[in-house]
Simulated assay, not measured.
Amino acid sequence: MTLPVAVDAMGGDDAPGVVVEGALEAVREGLDVVLVGRRDAIVAAGGESLDIIEASEVIEMSEEPSRAVRTKRDSSISLAVNAVRDGAASAIVSAGNTGAVAAAALLRLRRLPGVARPAIATAFPVPGGRTARVLLDSGAMADCNAQWLHQFARLGSAYSRIRFGVAAPCVGLLSIGEEPEKGNLLVKETHKLLAADDEIDFFGNIEGRDVLDGPVDVVVTDGFTGNVLLKSLEGTASFFVRLILERLSEGGPAGAEALRLLAPLADELSPDNVGGAMLLGVRGVCVIAHGSSSSTAVTNAIRVAHHMVEADLLGELAAVSLPSGDQLSPEPERPAGTTA
């Protein structure tokens, strides 16, 4: 019997309402869920029929992640992670403070054997029935070295195979030019490592314009650059969608018809349908949803968590042969604490 997914009921801009709504839909589909948070707030939002792990504290979006995780031991994020650690849940879903989720998972679940640093893998929806593209790191580790990025390429390739069924994922390294000599010192050193790795399909450097419509399945970069890229894409997409809607709404019947035709594309590109980002490299399935997640996004995140448990994501990642020299670091288990 599959253990339930522990869902942080207090995480997100519209929690606990949309979280409860999304969890209820998941339960109606036959998925096992346990909500973690303040019982009175969950019940008030309509979640009285759901299993609840009561938490008295909430880590706010504005709090410093590592400090909050260590001081708020009874927070919904901490107790959701503890549920997985203690064998009471199979996975974690949270739309709360990204850095706090990563810090709690790293502190309490620890890393998979051989993993130097975890990474957040974000999937981009791609129109036309094409396989979603994976970007990592998108916010877990702001400062990286070439060996960590090399591991990210291995982990991202495995994740693309397991989640999206890509037989031989093509990996691109984000840079300021396609030529191997382009980029900063980190990119140049990483390029050498990836080019010499026969176990991944390395395309080479790609530029920012290639992320959404380029030839690769997996995009590798450090957490600072990845997070800036991710939010830039989100902001650009939001701006142009709003602009198009405004113009078409002024176009009378022709505009209304155009809106009708564009509606399926908008649904196809909606990040709500992706199901959240995945924290790769820790000893637990951990899905990090966007802070502005809708109930649909929460339901999809729970679906993804169940799917990854059933597909034995952790077992598959643990079986990935990591590059030589990328051993566990003696440094403290401390994520960068950036937010996505």
Rank of each mutant, 00 (worst) to 15 (best):
L194Q: 04
A153Q: 00
N227L: 11
S62P: 07
S138P: 02
V285G: 02
E54Q: 13
E250Q: 14
T339R: 14
A83Q: 09
V298P: 10
V69P: 05
G46V: 05
V219Q: 08
A55T: 12
L186A: 07
L135A: 12
G22N: 03
A256P: 05
L194S: 07
E316Q: 14
S293M: 09
E178L: 10
V304H: 11
T236H: 05
G325P: 05
G17F: 11
L107Q: 15
E25M: 10
C144Y: 01
A121N: 01
A95K: 00
L328S: 11
D222L: 03
D32G: 12
I162G: 08
D137S: 10
I77P: 01
A83N: 07
N184P: 04
D32F: 06
D267A: 15
R130E: 13
G281W: 01
S160L: 11
V93M: 05
V285M: 04
M10Q: 10
F239N: 09
A196F: 02
L112F: 10
P113R: 12
P180H: 03
G165D: 10
V166M: 00
V18Q: 08
L135M: 15
H307K: 14
N273E: 13
G204W: 09
D86A: 15
A23N: 04
Y159H: 08
R242M: 08
D8A: 05
E234V: 07
A121S: 01
G204E: 06
D86N: 15
A102I: 12
I244W: 11
A89Y: 01
A142Q: 05
P4Y: 09
H191F: 14
L136V: 04
E207D: 08
G22C: 03
V36A: 01
A15Y: 04
P65S: 02
V218A: 01
E181F: 13
G156S: 07
R38V: 14
A196I: 01
Y159K: 03
S292F: 05
G235S: 08
V19T: 12
T339L: 09
V228S: 10
C144W: 02
D201M: 07
S49R: 14
P180F: 00
S90A: 15
R111M: 12
H290A: 07
S76H: 06
E63I: 06
S232Q: 13
L230E: 04
F203Y: 15
T71V: 11
S157R: 00
E64W: 01
P330D: 11
A158Q: 12
W148D: 06
A289G: 13
P4D: 07
R38G: 14
R28E: 13
V34I: 14
E179V: 05
H307P: 01
